[in-house]
């Protein structure tokens, strides 16, 4: 068991390092230009957003349609924090400043997660959905009317701290944290609420606390994603965080498979890169996007990966096994 775990860690770490090295070389040799690097950074941010939303939507099984609201809180609060630090003339290496930004963005969004989650999480299903939409819209309208953050004209002059190197590793760390959380005692308790709330309550799981915990974690990481977004774009406009953006993130999670973190990652990559690649067909791109969405849901309602996770270790095992058994069996598919 332990041996297997160790091997799995080794393989995954190696794979991530290899992936990074590959990108690093490609960027250094200018094989991929800034345009693609920009898309890759946006993809990483969307991966974080999708992973965090998956805690509520996938693990907890709740309909949360206001994720853009938490992202906005994280983005604006972190931007205000770094602006204050820079304006105060405090010298700080940019990586430290980014860490401060991430912490502020995550914590402020997390606090709002507790404030919003505690009263609302006793609502069920669609009612919770509409309430989360409501909060996200209120947050957006607040930023439109709030002078200190620039109001509707937007917040300018945010330090640009995010590049591919740091966003890549932050994404990896967030993914590892959320993976570990999902497998932990608390994560399993949260998943039990999704499966059957009443049964898990009877089994002694304090469901309310765990619901709020899951919701707050999701808000924290959404705020962190928002902080990354703010310090990548260097300019924030409230209109970015409209209702459709929340829906977009929700679509990513459902399309990847509710509860499947690897599914979220895959889906975030596909759905961020695909529209950008369809730029040539500008008029038709959303038409194609929506058609794919409908067809996908009709033929595979559980999403790309369903609830299962893609495991690189298993994949490699299977490859090796198949090679060994080439003559005896016709493949290892379930």
């Amino acid at each position: 068991m332990d041996q297997k775990k160790k091997k799995s860690y080794l393989i995954n770490t190696a794979a991530i390092a290899l992936l990074y090295l590959l990108f690093f070389v490609l960027i250094q040799t200018k094989t991929i230009n800034n345009y693609f690097v920009g898309i890759m950074i946006m993809t990483c941010i969307m991966i974080i957003m999708a992973l965090s939303l998956n805690i509520v939507a996938g693990f907890l099984g709740q309909m949360a349609l206001g994720h853009a609201g938490f992202m906005a809180i994280g983005a604006y609060s972190s931007a205000m924090a770094t602006k204050a630090i820079v304006d105060a003339g405090i010298e700080m290496p940019s990586i430290l400043l980014l860490l401060v930004a991430l912490l502020v963005g995550g914590l402020v969004a997390g606090i709002f997660g507790i404030l919003i989650g505690t009263p609302t999480l006793r609502l069920r299903g669609d009612y919770l959905g509409i309430v989360t939409i409501g909060f996200a819209e209120i947050i957006r309208i607040f930023f439109i009317n709030f002078g200190p953050t620039g109001g509707a004209a937007g917040l300018k002059g945010i330090s640009k701290l995010v590049d591919f190197n740091n966003v890549f590793f932050i994404t990896v760390i967030v993914a590892v944290l959320i993976f570990t959380f999902g497998r932990s005692k608390h994560g399993r308790a949260i998943i039990s609420i999704r499966e059957d709330e009443i049964a898990s309550e009877s089994a002694g799981v304090p469901t309310t606390i765990y619901k709020v915990l899951g919701f707050t974690m999701a808000a924290f990481f959404a705020g962190l994603g928002g902080a990354l977004y703010a310090h990548y774009q260097a300019f924030l406009e409230p209109s970015k965080f409209a209702f459709m953006f929340s829906i977009e993130m929700f679509v990513i999670v459902v399309l990847g498979g509710l509860g499947s973190l690897t599914g979220s990652i895959l889906s975030a990559i596909v759905l961020t890169v695909l529209p950008e690649m369809l730029r040539e067909f500008s008029e038709y791109r959303l038409l194609i996007y929506s058609l794919l969405l409908i067809i996908m849901m009709i033929f595979r309602p559980q999403g790309m990966l369903g609830r299962s996770e893609f495991s690189l270790t298993d994949f490699i095992d299977k490859l090796i096994m198949r090679k060994n058994r080439k003559t005896t069996s016709d493949g290892g598919e379930k």
Partner: peptide, 17 residues
């Protein structure tokens, strides 16, 4: 008979379409 969230995403898809 699919999960309700899938039906919801389909509805969103129809809306965007």
């Amino acid at each position: 008979n699919a999960p309700r969230l899938s039906a919801l995403i389909t509805a969103i898809g129809v809306s965007i379409f």
